[in-house]
């Protein structure tokens, strides 16, 4: 098996996903997609849920994809992947296909946490051998920044506005990585666009398991998050360093921590550069920040207990 560095110089693999798409400057999505596709050695079939990635990579009259690619609807990427994978399995069994083909689905958080959860859950439970990647930018960015199940507590969105009666989203985000893990699938991991090697290795591991695999990748959105377009990687990095978005994997039910910050940064470091949290820094909202810090602390402690020092 060649290492990821070798694959990075493999021209055909490099061009699975090409430039000249219309994703915004600083968007984490293409970084996520490239890193994952560049790390997979075998031929891939890509399934894409509705979202920024789908819209901006298939602009009239172009496409950024050099691999077999299918978009069906918003809610069913995992179901379509199930069909493709089952058909390949049948053809392989009859000897009509001998190649190993990797089925990779990409969905945003809207298409994964919310409308696509039913299809994802069904596919995980049925045990299809496919990789589902959620590029998680924590809101419906394609339709103009509406809150999703992934939007964090107290973040501002157009449908969780801030004002006299509201401080942004009043609910906590759901922990999708954990929900997926509860399906007893062989490989589940949380990654970030900031840590490319970690992400590439995880993509590699994910496609090598015989069953469903899932990657939840923190993916920046300068438009929705309100940070400078040239700071995406740094911002995502802060998510990791503050333990807001820890990097970990769950292999056959065993939790492993992939990165232990030398010194955990306080959550304000993650909140401050993003305009969606700007209202938290107005006087009177200190308690909200304390509440967020407490949530992060609790989640982190829980994660450490689960990992029991496995790294």
């Amino acid at each position: 098996m060649p290492n990821t560095k070798e694959l990075a110089h493999h021209e055909e693999i490099q061009k699975r996903f090409t430039g000249a798409h219309a994703l915004c400057a600083g968007c984490g999505t293409p970084v996520c997609v490239r890193t994952i596709l560049n790390a997979i050695e075998e031929p891939v079939v890509v399934i894409n849920a509705t979202g920024c990635l789908e819209v901006a990579t298939t602009r009239y009259p172009t496409t950024a994809w050099n691999v077999p690619w299918i978009h069906v609807a918003f809610e069913n990427a995992a179901a379509v992947a199930s069909g493709i994978e089952a058909a390949y399995r049948a053809l392989r069994r009859r000897g009509k296909i001998t190649k190993e083909i990797r089925v990779v689905a990409f969905g945003g958080d809207g298409g994964t946490y919310d409308i696509g959860l039913q299809a994802l859950s069904g596919a995980l439970e049925r045990g299809h051998r496919f990789l589902y990647v959620c590029y998680d930018n924590e809101a419906y960015m394609n339709t103009g920044n509406q809150r999703s199940g992934a939007t964090p507590f107290a973040a501002q969105t157009t449908t969780a506005p801030t004002g006299e009666k509201s401080f942004g989203k009043p609910q906590r985000r759901k922990d999708l990585t954990e929900i997926v893990a509860a399906h007893h699938v062989p490989y589940v991991a949380q990654a970030s666009i900031s840590d490319w090697y970690d992400l590439a290795v995880k993509a590699r591991k994910a496609v090598s398991v015989d069953g469903p695999a899932f990657l939840n990748v923190l993916s920046t959105c300068p438009r929705g998050w309100g940070h400078p377009t040239d700071q995406s990687i740094k911002i995502a990095r802060l998510g990791v360093e503050t333990c807001y978005w820890p990097l970990y994997e769950i292999i056959d039910g065993q939790w492993h921590l992939n990165y232990m910050p030398e010194e955990r940064l306080p959550i304000v470091e993650w909140l401050r550069p993003q305009r969606r949290f700007a209202h938290l820094f107005e006087p009177g909202n200190e308690a909200l920040i304390a509440q967020i810090q407490q949530q992060v602390d609790e989640d982190w402690e829980k994660l450490l207990r689960r990992c029991e020092g496995r790294a």
């Binding site: 409308i115 394609n142 509406q146 157009t158 969780a160 506005p161 004002g163």
Partner: peptide
């Protein structure tokens, strides 16, 4: 649920 081109209705009503 957000969808182009009707999302602004929900955005307005959320406010």
């Amino acid at each position: 649920y957000p969808i182009t081109p009707s999302s602004e209705i929900m955005e307005y009503l959320a406010r």
